[in-house]
Structure formats: C-alpha cells, structure tokens
Design a protein around this nucleic acid. Structure first.
Lengths: 307, 307
DNA sequence: AATGCTTCATAAGTAAAAGCGATTATTTAC
DNA sequence: GTAAATAATCGCTTTTACTTATGAAGCATT
C-alpha cells in the first residue's frame, strides 16, 4: 500500500509529539490515554505514511530518538497541533460572543436615541467585540446590504416584505408635528391634522420614510407642500425653529430636549412607523448577533413608551 | 458524547475545505473521491466536534454557505492543510537528499586533499544542501562530536574501537619521510628507517596520530627526537625545507608538488594509517549522508593509489 | 399544485481500522 | 547470569468509516 502524507491524521501527529517529548512509547501512551500497543501502531502508521522511520528504537531503557525525517515531521506537527488548539480557543470565544466583528446597519434617529445605550451595554459585556456601525438614510440599502452579508444585523423600518430578511419589532415610533417654540398652541392637546392643509412645511427628502408620511397625509385630505427638505433631522428641526414651517417627524427623530420647539401628537394620528432589527433569514448567526438583539429589545422595552 | 476539537481529523478539514470551495457536498465528494454520503457524514462529524453547524444548507440547488463558526474553522483548516502539504514537499527533498544541513567533521590533510573534490561533486548534485565543515586535529574530539550528534558524518583515523560509531574505510595512507630538496638521496629507492636514528626530526604535536608514529619508530629501534613540533602540516613541511631535519608524515598530509622537498617511502614501512568516514551507529541517517559517503568512497577509489 | 430536479440526510450493511491484552524479543543494568 | 524496561507482534473485540439505497426538503417548470 503506497500511503502518502494525505493519509495522516491528527492522532498520528499527536502520538509523534507525545513520544518525542516523553522519549518512550509507553509513557506517551499513558499521557494520551491509550495502550502502549496503540501508540506503537499509530507510529507505525505514521511511518508508513512518511515512508521511513521517525524514531530510532534503541532498545532497553534508552529513550527513543528521532530520525531526521521524524524531526522534520514533528516540526510541522507542532505547528498543526498548535493551530488546532488556537482554533478551539477562538471557537470558545465565538460561542461566548466575545470576539469577532459585528457590523450593524442603522439610521440617524436610531443612532442617536437607541444605539448608544445598547452599544454601551454590549461593550461592557464583551469589550473585545469589534462593533462597527454603518449608517444609511435608505432602508432598502440596509436591506440589500443585509442580504449581501455585508451587515450582520440592521435596524430597519417596516413594513418589511423581503423574505431574505428575518426581523423582530423593536418599537412603534409615532409621527408627531414639530412646531416653533413660540407658536401658541394648546400645549396639552393634540394637534389637528387639518391645520396643516395649505401650510408651508419642512420635511425629509423623498425617501421611503417620507413617502409614507406624504401618502397618509394625502389620504387624510392634506396636501403637503415643502419649502425645505433635508434628510438630516437636526437640519429639519433647525428650520422649524427658524420659522420655516411645521414638520411631521418620527418622534425618535426629534431632539425633544430642545425648548425652542414644541412637539404635539396629531389628531387623527398617522400610522406610526415600526422599527425592527433584522438579519438574513435562515443563516446561522454568530451568538454575538443574538445577544445584541436581546439587549436591543430589552433596552428599548425598558425605555418604556417615551414615544 | 462530548466531542471536542481534539477528535477532529485531517479528513474532516479536507472535507470542510472541499465543500466550502465547491459549494456542494456532492461535488466535494467527487473531488475527494468519496460518496456524497461519506462527505455528509464527515461534515456531520466535524459539526459534532465543533459544537455547531459549519454550513447553512439552503436546500434545493443553492450553494451551501458557511456559518461564522465554519469560516473560523476553515481559516485554520487551510493553514493546517497547507502545512501538511509543505511537510510532504520537505520530506520529498529529504528523501532526495537535496535539502537540510550536513555537518561534516574533518582534519587538515583530508580537507586539503580529499574533500574539495567530493564537496564539489555533492554541491553539483544538490546545490541547496547546506554543507558545513568542522575541522579538528583531535580524532577523539571528532568521535565525541559524532556521538553527541553534533556531526552528521566525520572523517576519522583508525583504529576505531568506539562502538557508538560505525565507519567504512576510505583509504590507507602510508607514512613517508619528507626530506629537504637539496639532500642527496638515491631518488628512486626507499629510505632506510635506520638512518633516522639519532637525527633531529620535525614532527606533529603529541596527539593520537603522532603517538602512533612514535610508538612504531621505537619498536623499530629508532628513538625520535623532535626539534620542532606543529600540528600544521604546512609548518612542518616548511621546517623540513629549512633544514631543521626530516619528518615522518602521512602521505596525504604532504604537499607533494613542492619541489623543495623530497618524499621517500620508508624501509621497512610503518603501518599506514587508515582513514575512515564514520557516523553514529544504529541511527537512521539522512539520505544526504549516505550519498556523501558513496561519493567519498568512489572519488577516493578513482584517485587510485596515488598514496 | 403537481412534476421533476437537485440537494443533503439517514438507514443498513460491510469492510477497514483502531484499540486492547497478552506475549515475545531485545537490550540495559545489576 | 537475572531482573527490569522497552517496543513489536499476535489474536481478538469494538469502533469507525465508507458504500449503496432510500427518504425528505426546496426550487423550478409546467
């Protein structure tokens, strides 16, 4: 039988190392938990594969000595065994979710309001985890990058009809009207949607989210007319503050601590947008992803309905 | 059964790589020369050892995709398989005697007269072989270093009674008398040993070889009296040239091209010294050693009895 | 939705091997 | 010489690895 190195198995290399270190087949067998006979046969098998002896058996109580070929193979065996050990360690870390990279898709309002708390928690739990954020205005882009495996995880805005993606709902985020702080309104009451009819408004650019708003406004009989548009929430809010007009924004996107604007719920309310965290459907996820989702859900829940 | 990575075998890693590259269990099986079922079981075994799936089977004609754990293990698997391949290549070279290091013990006369031709031949055959020479006056030191595995091979002077060493005879090297070139002798005849009695002589220092000479001289009734001693053959020869006296030297140690000295065989002759090449007894030798010995023997034989 | 196609898993059987215990041969140490 | 240590070998049992055959799941096409 013309064996080649391809037939070598880890067990042979482990036996080689054990015998080399112990200087004896019997003691190597003890260490490995085998019988002396087994180790003898393992080395014999290795020698068949190598094509020549790896040990000189000197007989009697003298140590087995390696042949040149034995030393050569041992050199590589040690590297291989070490590598296997390293793989085991990294697997343990992977199971614990403490290593590797986690690439998360997000968008502006989530980045500002939700993510800092979650990321801070995760970093406390697993400081070696390499967390990266990819921010985009475009929900579809986030979905595409999830499907392309560029993102491990992404915050998304519903409705989701892409079956490449699996997601769970994080929260409902109502749309509110943002008014300049000096406008007189009945501060405790909701803002009648009808009052927006004919008013110059500030809004986001025509992307998925803004289109949802506009469609609903129109079916409620309000035709939006925008005098300023930006995808930057801060810019929109600044324009409201400057008196350009009111804006309908998702509550999460509003900097509510700003005393120079007022925030009112709408009457009748628009359908709130739904925020999800999603991942590729049907793929095994790194445990770190699952843990991140868990923490996101519980953190968001704990925030209560400040929305 | 709580398997760990220790139970992994090369075959599993090869299967992992094949499936990862082919994207299919069946095609991987073809490539490896197994049945699809076998590969399926190998991957299943790997997953048992890893503790989690390494592939997401998407069903239907879609490619199998790796899980995070799978990618991690594959990374190491590739390194391990490459290492094994490298070991195979190096073993081939070892078998061919074309790599590694060859440390050769030698002494002055051999270094000058025999080695250059042999080394030149070996270097022509196997240019990548790293040949190193260790020169010593002291035969016992060479033997000791051979036994200590510091030398792969050594030229030695007999008689050899050390059973740690195995050796073969290279040549017999007769002792001759070296005389100044201007001395009148019957150029074609041997030199009577008795003429040395009472003469001031030049010789080597009291090491093994010189002691052999002195013992024989004495039993032949000649008491050597040295007025100059050196272990450097060139120095001895220079002193003869300068008229300090004759010297008994091994023929191989004489620079015979020197017209200023005359070389005569002795009558009766001394027992010639025997030159061997030796190695550690009972140890497997690198093929390069055996090849070197072969070439040494044939080269020396071809030189004929120029001695 | 029924079918065919591709893919992988599983079951059953067989052949190979890996391992064990006992024995033997060889060598050193005393 | 005898005792101790070491590894190879033999017969045997158990384990495993592989094969073939079959089943199940998903996609694509009709």
């Amino acid at each position: 039988m013309n064996m080649s190195l391809q037939n070598i198995e880890i067990r042979h290399l482990a036996a080689l190392r054990a015998v080399a270190e112990e200087g004896s087949f019997g003691r190597a067998a003890d260490r490995l938990g085998f019988s002396q006979s087994a180790v003898s046969q393992q080395i014999a098998g290795l020698e068949r594969a190598v094509g020549q002896p790896v040990f000189d058996r000197l007989g009697g109580p003298r140590k087995a000595e390696m042949t040149p070929a034995g030393r050569l193979v041992l050199k590589h065996a040690e590297s291989i065994l070490a590598r296997l050990d390293l793989a085991g360690q990294e697997l343990d870390k992977l199971r614990a979710g403490t290593n590797g990279r986690l690439v998360i898709g997000t968008f502006q309002s989530v980045s500002v309001k939700l993510l800092p708390a979650v990321v801070s928690l995760v970093r406390k739990e697993t400081p070696d985890l390499d967390i990266r954020l990819v921010e985009s205005d475009d929900n579809d882009e986030l979905i595409q990058r999830l499907a392309d495996d560029e993102l491990d995880l992404s915050f998304l805005i519903g409705p989701l009809d892409d079956d490449r993606i699996e997601a769970i709902e994080i929260c409902r985020d109502p749309f509110v009207v943002v008014l300049p702080g000096d406008v007189e309104t009945s501060s405790e009451h909701n803002y009648p949607l009808s009052e927006l009819e004919g008013r110059a408004m500030v809004g986001g650019q025509a992307c998925s989210c803004q289109e949802l708003i506009d469609d609903e406004l129109r079916s409620a009989g309000v035709t939006p007319e925008y005098v300023f548009r930006s995808n930057d929430n801060g810019a929109v809010q600044a324009m409201v503050r400057a008196g350009m007009g009111p804006s309908i924004m998702a509550l999460l996107a509003v900097e509510t601590d700003d005393p120079r604007v007022k925030v009112r719920h709408l009457d009748p309310p628009l359908t709130p947008r739904t925020i999800y965290v999603g991942w590729r459907r049907g793929r095994t996820r790194p445990p770190a992803v699952d843990r991140f989702v868990e923490l996101t859900v519980s953190t968001t829940r704990n925030r209560g309905d400040q929305n």
